[in-house]
Design a protein around this nucleic acid. Sequence first.
DNA 1: GACCAGGCACATC
DNA 2: GATGTGCATGGT
Length: 221
Amino acid sequence: MLSERLIEIYELLFERFGAQHWWPGETEFEIIVGAILTQNTNWDNVEKAIGNLKSANLLSPERLHNTKVLELAELIRPAGYFNIKAKRLKNFLDWLFDNYDGDLGELEAVDTEQLREELLSVKGIGRETADSILLYALNRGVFVVDAYTARVAFRHMLIEPDADYERLRELFESNLPEDVQLFNEYHALLVRVGKEFCKPKARCTGCPLEELPRTVDIEDF
DNA sequence: GACCAGGCACATC
DNA sequence: GATGTGCATGGT
């Protein structure tokens, strides 16, 4: 029932928008950095910050680990919250070097659930950031929930409007086949439709999901 | 000038 | 557990 509905929604979105080619980023590490920098921030601003890191030739765990936090903050200034995000990047790198010799390849041997717990223990990495890293950088079968996901889900997916993060994650993970590529594309498509049509407190004229039954009134989300 | 954007930690009740 | 606040830039 729910799984058929989730697949129907996925197909409607894919037919309209096609492949989204997520995550934008050339390397595993660039994806991780982007996941932290994009917290509550427009992606265009994140790209400027990542561009600065690339220009400074600092986009590697080793080199970023050896960069002073103040210098790092200045480089990522366009991404906003630059002081706190510089510290968050440092926290991640400290964890990586303390536990895995600074080698992202060593993470491959770690069980997904354990890795999620460890990432969540890093100060500045919350559930969405951890899950984005797991899915988009490390190719683990974890569904990423964000503000767009929640809004679309509450409007169309027959889930209680007060469902929390874990409940939303469970909705997708327990009603879809565990498929990294499907999770990758589905989340990206939810962001796409959320940006273009399923906006806060706006009727979504022309939205590919327009005719589907709703859980709640549009005005509430 | 107001509002928003691919959150999170922390304080407080 | 739920709710409120600080963190900050750049586009509309």
